[in-house]
Nucleic acid binder design. Structure first.
Length: 212
DNA sequence: CACCAGGCAAGTA
DNA sequence: TACTTGCATGGT
């Protein structure tokens, strides 16, 4: 029952310890963060979230009440602010239409149906949808991101052109579908990517995965 | 200064 | 279908 990927998880956990993801207070904040962090450093997202909290409108009804330009201005530090304001708005409209604006109700939806509805929102792709499912709705869905791809390529698990679902099945085929495991594993992969597997530098002579 | 960050959709041929 | 480009701030 012990796969090579499980061994990697164990090594990373031993090296870094629990990551306590997602960094966010509640499911709605986590969902907003998942959209804002697309191709963007988390520190920039934190500034945007802080702005939204300062207005007191960090909720489904609150954000829905803001004009698009006002929302864009508040999330400016997260970058791509016009695009992301539209994406948040698209998401809020889906919650309004499918769940009568009841975000907590949306979180109780069947995983497969919710995933399809999230993917139906312009601006929510596989990674963002799966992040919401795992970290906001606590479903056993494995999240793939750019760090996962880079680490798997550099450690010769996959070819460069392996797509999102190719990577996802690599994990889900051998790991038990446990949300705590998926939560920690993805968080550990991001941590490892940030510290040891940056785009320009190999630097993997000190990577905790060396020799795995 | 150049390069990068926890993507995604739209445009082009 | 398979590539390419636009989106944008802030840290190193």
């Amino acid at each position: 029952m012990s796969s090579r990927l499980m061994e990697i998880h164990d090594r990373l956990l031993a090296h870094f310890g629990p990551q306590h993801w997602w960094p966010g207070d509640d499911p709605f904040e986590i969902t907003v963060g998942a959209i804002l962090t697309q191709n963007t450093s988390w520190t920039n997202v934190e500034k945007a979230i802080a702005n939204l909290k300062a207005t007191g409108y960090l909720s489904c009804a609150g954000l829905s009440s803001l004009p698009l330009e006002a929302l864009a201005e508040l999330i400016r530090p997260a970058g791509y602010f016009n695009v992301k304001a539209r994406r948040l708005s698209n998401f809020l409209r889906m919650v309004e239409q499918q769940y009568q604006g009841d975000f907590a109700g949306m979180l109780l939806e069947d995983t497969g149906i919710l995933r399809q509805r999230l993917l139906g929102v312009k601006g929510i792709g596989p990674e963002t949808a799966d992040s919401i499912l795992l970290y906001a709705a606590n479903r056993p869905v494995f999240v793939i991101d750019a760090y996962t791809h880079r680490i798997l390529v550099r450690h010769n698990f996959i070819d460069e052109d392996t797509d999102y679902y190719g990577m996802q099945t690599l994990f889900t085929d051998v790991l038990p579908p446990a949300r705590h495991l998926f939560n920690e594993f993805h968080a550990l992969i991001v941590r490892t990517g940030k510290e040891f597997c940056k785009k320009a530098k190999p630097l993997c002579n000190v990577c905790p995965l060396e020799g795995a």
